[in-house]
């Protein structure tokens, strides 16, 4: 019985965007393919207006889901796990094992919370955006000059709600549909935020493990060979080979620094690009042929998982590298 139910649910999930919506001639399901997240409403905090974007709103949903899940799973902990506890334990144990295998038992304790939180947050973010039916429901400002695009079913809001949702500034008036739910991974603010957290924590852990001075001088400011050169110069027997290698080391240190900064960018745009493009692909496919999203849904679920995994794994690896004492020559 349960299996049948899940099959039907699955079919419905696949059918709604691919089959049902085009039949109803709802052309502008997600009229906007915008990089910029849409503003749902603004919170007034004194003199400061805090615009709440749909991605921020969805971030909170993701957090709420995770916290509720964690709460449900650990509410009644038992030695013999069952239900949610089992699920959570499997996830956490898998991530912890990964940390242990990569970073060793001691560092795993330190890295694990960050890595696990990144994985869970990104995973739920990615998958939440895939749930059909959320994307097309949102807010769209309509007036006499700008009627709703053809095919969009609109329901007028009460004056209070209009007050609440309406953008406060005229220049924000864009006449696009602002979906309530949009995956946070399609918002660059979130991906940059995560990338910053990952890389800053990486540097901090590295400095904690090796000492601030040693960390910087071993990785970025490599003047060891210069010092040696001047020592030999002081003795009157200068080794000019050391001088050349010193120059090389200096250059390598700069490269290392640039690569460290560029990791933030690659983190940011890898996640954003994959998930954003995935949702666009799904949207396009829905209008091409009703069966097409079937395949792409499976694929995007996979991509969502892989991106979450990659983000977490790379963070883990960078942290491991940063906390490993090494000569810079060994790592390129």
């Amino acid at each position: 019985m349960k299996r049948w139910l899940s099959i039907i649910l699955f079919a419905a999930v696949l059918l709604v965007p691919g089959f049902v919506l085009p039949r109803f001639d709802v052309k502008a399901v997600t009229a906007s393919v915008a990089v910029k997240p849409e503003v749902l409403f603004e919170l007034e905090l004194g003199s400061f207006n805090f615009p709440i974007s749909n991605t921020l709103f969805t971030s909170w949903i993701v957090m709420l889901m995770l916290v509720l899940f964690a709460f449900a799973a650990t509410r009644k902990m038992s030695l013999v796990p069952g239900g949610w506890q089992n699920v959570l334990e499997v996830i956490i144990e898998a991530i912890y094992k990964l940390c242990e295998n990569t970073a060793g038992a001691v560092r795993a304790k330190k890295f694990f919370p960050v890595v696990a939180t990144i994985f869970l947050f990104v995973l739920v973010s990615n998958w939440l955006g895939l749930i059909p039916g959320f994307g097309p429901i949102g807010i769209i400002p309509v007036d006499a000059k700008h009627p709703a695009p053809e095919g969009i079913a609109t329901f007028p809001l009460s004056r209070d709600l209009q007050e609440f949702f309406g953008p406060k500034h005229a220049d924000h008036h864009e006449y696009v549909l602002a979906p309530f739910v949009r995956s946070p991974s399609t918002d660059l603010n979130m991906t940059i935020g995560l990338a910053l957290i990952a890389m800053v924590l990486t540097q901090i852990f590295g400095m904690q493990a090796l000492g601030v001075v040693k960390y910087w001088f071993a990785r970025f400011i490599m003047i060891g060979k210069f010092v040696e050169f001047f020592k030999t110069l002081g003795k009157g027997k200068p080794k000019f080979g050391l001088f050349v290698f010193g120059l090389l080391d200096l250059f390598v240190g700069i490269l290392e620094f640039i690569s460290e900064v560029s990791k933030i960018l690659s983190f940011t745009f890898r996640l954003f690009g994959n998930i954003f493009a995935g949702e666009v692909v799904l949207l396009v496919m829905a209008f091409l042929f009703f069966a097409a999203p079937f395949i792409f849904y499976a694929f995007e679920l996979f991509v969502g998982f892989i991106q979450a995994f990659v983000f977490a794994l790379l963070t883990l690896i960078f942290m491991t590298i940063a906390t490993t004492a090494h000569g810079a020559e060994e790592h390129h």
Binding site: L56, V114, L120, I192, G193, L194
Partner: peptide, 16 residues
């Protein structure tokens, strides 16, 4: 929004 997201993550990290 950037700060909001960073705070979000910090909060989630703490709670989880």
């Amino acid at each position: 929004w950037l700060i909001a997201q960073i705070v979000n993550f910090g909060l989630l990290l703490f709670i989880l």
